[in-house]
Design a protein around this nucleic acid. Structure first.
Length: 504
DNA sequence: TCGTTATGTCATAAG
DNA sequence: CTCTTATGACATAAC
């Protein structure tokens, strides 16, 4: 594991996510899909309970809301002609064909009933919220009229939702893929997007509950804008129209395409709140709602939604990219990731301050704009002293925050590098020690050989009388030119050496 | 309750 | 001189 960790840390520089190296990715993806479905069902069950609770109060079943201007468009009409051609994958798929061309006249099979029912529930939730928010000030007649006019619209939109839901469901089944939608080659979300694009704009606005992906997408794009100098009271109308679906959509799903692990990386890595687009988006929602309604209940509701949204977001982010472990430990791991994520996404003090002073420039722009653009943005907005100071502080702190993060990363990398160096030096030390022992053994062997050679030379040496020389009285000495001399060991060094006339 | 870890913030030096 | 970046030190929250 240490080795893996070290390798990962090295690869982090390359922008590679750690989770990418985890094995059993498919298994984890399937786990995450199941987890999402479970979560979704729980959310929907909660909403259904809430609806039932309301039923007890009113004694009637509330219809689904649909905007008055929404148009009933059959799904086959919505589909691009290319989808319905003779050779299209849709028409060639018997399941799809059966669904697409019989849906208008048939009720869904029982096993799909639950799915379709769930698919339309967000819409019901929207209607419920509208009623709740309006009931305090609308006359009873208006509410009744609202209720009476809704069922027909509900039928129309429910048809569309049913078709879309069935299409996605069938595509998922026919592809036999239990993996995140974003990884599919023929992403149902894309088909869905194609379908919804063909629906008039007003109808599209009724769709978000069943197509949260595109809701998020459009909101993300609209949020990521240059300095908005309109101020909070001049919130763009698109936010207002966009707000309601979000408001009624605590179980807003975001696929990895919208918030890929790399986006997540951006979230985790920096203060860069624009990177955590979804959260910024929520902040924008808060701004917008704040300007629309100052009631505490709305704010509480939004806080709750934000919390739910972030929870869901973290589940989405980490549910699909957690490490491969036993199911139980995987849950723990996911939980840890979520906790870490929530910790990271905790609203910073600067975000709160920015909200309090209603800064006209986004946090992202304040921090990341180049000096010139930043100064231009400052000068183009009418700012009071407090706002100006806060913006400067936010920029300074934001930059320092990122600097601190990179600094710590460098420090960690350096630490890892030093640890590697220590390991290398330890190995080198070990090798040197082994070499030293080897050389010591060799030296000993050489000394033994020399001793034997020495005694052999003395054994063979004879003087002119044929007597041997005693090693105790004589010694051998090697001169610089290779000549070997026989020298007496006596203290009297005046005696000339006897040249052995032998060379080594 | 205490230690650890991650992160944000401030102060300051250097480029 | 201003701005940015790097980094040590401290604070704080979560575990």
């Amino acid at each position: 594991m240490d080795l893996i960790d070290i390798l990962w840390r090295q690869d982090v520089d390359l922008g590679v996510e750690r989770e990418i190296f985890d094995g059993c990715l498919r298994q984890r993806e399937e786990e995450s899909v199941r987890e999402r479905e479970l979560k979704r069902e729980q959310e929907l069950e909660r909403i259904r309970q809430r609806l039932q609770k309301l039923d007890k109060e009113t004694g009637e079943v509330l219809p689904s809301p649909s905007h008055a201007n929404s148009q009933a468009v059959s799904f086959s009409e919505m589909l691009p002609s290319s989808v319905l051609t003779e050779h299209s994958p849709v028409t060639q798929n018997p399941l799809l064909s059966a669904l697409l061309f019989s849906k208008k006249s048939q009720k869904p099979p029982p096993q799909e009933q639950n799915f379709l029912e769930l698919a339309t529930l967000p819409d019901l939730q929207f209607y419920l919220d509208v009623l709740e928010s309006e009931s305090s000030r609308l006359p009873l007649e208006d509410i009744c009229q609202h209720s009476l006019s809704a069922p027909r619209q509900m039928e129309q939109t429910t048809d569309v939702f049913n078709c879309i839901s069935d299409l996605m469901h069938t595509i998922s089944e026919s592809f036999q893929v239990a993996q995140p939608l974003s990884e599919m080659g023929s992403d149902p979300g894309e088909i869905l997007g194609t379908c919804t694009q063909s629906v008039p704009e007003t109808s599209t606005q009724t769709l978000p509950p069943s197509n949260p992906v595109y809701t998020s997408k459009t909101r993300i794009e609209s949020q990521d804008i240059s300095p908005r100098c309109q101020g909070e009271n001049a919130a763009p109308s698109e936010f207002c129209t966009d707000l309601k679906p979000m408001e009624t959509e605590p179980f807003n799903y975001v696929t990895e395409r919208d918030l890929s692990p790399f986006d997540d990386h951006r979230v985790l890595q920096g203060f860069d709140d624009s990177a955590s687009v979804a959260s910024v988006d929520l902040d924008t929602s808060l701004y917008t709602v704040d300007s629309l309604s100052n009631s505490q209940s709305d704010m509480d509701e939004l806080e709750s939604i934000q919390s739910d949204y972030i929870d869901m977001l973290s589940m989405e982010l980490y549910g699909t990219v957690t490490s491969s472990q036993e199911p139980q430990t995987q849950n723990e791991s996911t939980l840890n990731h979520c906790n870490q994520f929530n910790r990271v996404r905790r609203t910073s003090r600067d975000e709160q301050r920015a909200r309090a002073l209603s800064l006209p420039i986004s946090m992202h722009d304040i921090i990341n704009l180049p000096v010139d653009a930043f100064n231009e943005a400052l000068s183009s907005c009418k700012l009071n002293e407090a706002q100006h100071t806060l913006i400067r502080d936010i920029r300074r702190r934001g930059k320092n925050k990122m600097a601190a993060q990179s600094c710590r990363k460098r420090k960690m990398d350096s630490l890892v590098g030093l640890e590697d160096e220590i390991e290398a030096l330890k190995r080198e030390k070990h090798d040197c020690k082994e070499e030293k022992e080897k050389n010591t053994r060799k030296l000993f062997e050489m000394k033994e050989k020399l001793k034997k050679l020495y005694s052999e030379v003395f054994r063979r040496l004879r003087d002119e009388r044929g007597s041997s020389y005693s090693p105790k009285e004589y010694k051998l000495q090697l001169s610089t030119d290779g000549t070997v001399f026989l020298l007496p060991r006596s203290t009297n060094r005046n005696i000339p050496p006897e040249d052995l006339a032998t060379t080594s």
